[in-house]
Write a protein that binds this DNA or RNA. Structure first.
Length: 290
DNA sequence: AGTTGTGTTGAAGA
DNA sequence: ATCTTCAACACAAC
């Protein structure tokens, strides 16, 4: 699931590879992925635009293009971007280079392809076709409700436990749900919510407003620490996420609780439990998370 | 072989 | 306002 660390990894790699490149053609077999404008117009408009910047906001990938346009990509659950070269053989696209692009089935769900003037291609592989792709005028996008409603970036230097406290106090929902609310903090999903709460020794069931000053401080530092470690590990590939080159991240190897029901807590040895909170699985240690 | 679990977001319903 | 449910979609595991 691409959350902040996964999207950050993709954005950093894109910056190294596609700056100053121009889109020369696109293809899709799933026009519904393009939410705005409708596919024929999207295709006509993006051809000839140059990539001048690539940024991340929450879980959103924002390509800054020439003509003051932006290309927005949200990968949702099973989407990931790949950079490479493919050839169409029958119904499916086959990578021209061997390795994970060819061998890993996760990298074979190509539903949208961009050709660049460098000869490289950017492909969106998305088993469930939930991803969102939009081409908009930058001014309209940055002033949109969608963009303005995103909460602060947890890894920005200015994000402090004071701000976190202000944003979660008086909120009655469970802290796990608050952490995943993109309008409270941007970029955290199920994996990192569970990992952060374990690290901070806070139960996912606690009403957000019940956290003490010190617990908010612990939560804030756990958040920064876990997310930074995950970025350094190039994200988590528990299931579908892959890097631009089609490889798995490494954070799943060092995660402590997410999808580890029945295993031992690394801190106290108690068995990790799994329980639904608002329809989502929460993984936690019932002994050391209070 | 049908059922369930998977998680992000936004919309709809309570 | 705040919360819950569902839909979008497709596959693996049971």
């Amino acid at each position: 699931m691409p959350e902040l660390p996964e999207v950050e990894t993709i954005v950093r790699d894109l910056r190294l590879k596609v700056l100053q490149r121009t889109f020369i053609d696109i293809w899709t077999d799933a026009e519904k992925l393009i939410k705005f404008p409708a596919f024929p117009k999207f295709k006509k408009e993006i051809i000839g635009l140059k990539v001048e910047g690539v940024n991340r906001r929450g879980k959103n990938i924002i390509f800054e293009l020439s003509e003051r346009r932006i290309l927005l990509v949200h990968l949702k659950m099973t989407g990931h971007l790949l950079l490479g070269k493919w050839r169409k053989t029958g119904a499916l696209w086959r990578s021209e280079v061997s390795g994970p692009m060819q061998d890993d089935p996760t990298n074979r769900f190509l539903h949208l392809i961009f050709w660049l003037d460098s000869g490289q291609m950017i492909a969106l592989s998305d088993m469930r076709k939930f991803a969102k792709v939009e081409l908009r005028k930058a001014s309209e996008f940055y002033s949109s409700k969608y963009f303005k409603d995103l909460g602060p970036e947890p890894l920005s230097k200015s994000f402090s436990s004071k701000e976190l406290g202000e944003r979660i106090q008086k909120r009655k929902r469970k802290i796990k749900q608050i952490l995943m609310d993109q309008s409270v903090i941007a970029g955290i999903g199920n994996i990192y919510a569970d990992e952060i709460l374990w690290q901070a020794k806070i139960s996912p069931f606690r009403p957000a407003e019940s956290l003490s000053f010190w617990e908010v401080e612990d939560l804030c530092s756990a958040m920064k620490e876990v997310l930074k470690k995950a970025v350094a590990a190039k994200g988590s590939s528990v299931s579908d996420y892959r890097t631009l080159s089609g490889e798995k991240g490494k954070f799943q190897e060092i995660r402590k609780v997410y999808r580890k029901e029945g295993e031992r807590c690394p801190k106290c040895g108690e068995k990790i439990k799994r329980q639904k909170i608002g329809g989502r699985s929460a993984h936690f240690c019932p002994k050391c998370q209070k």
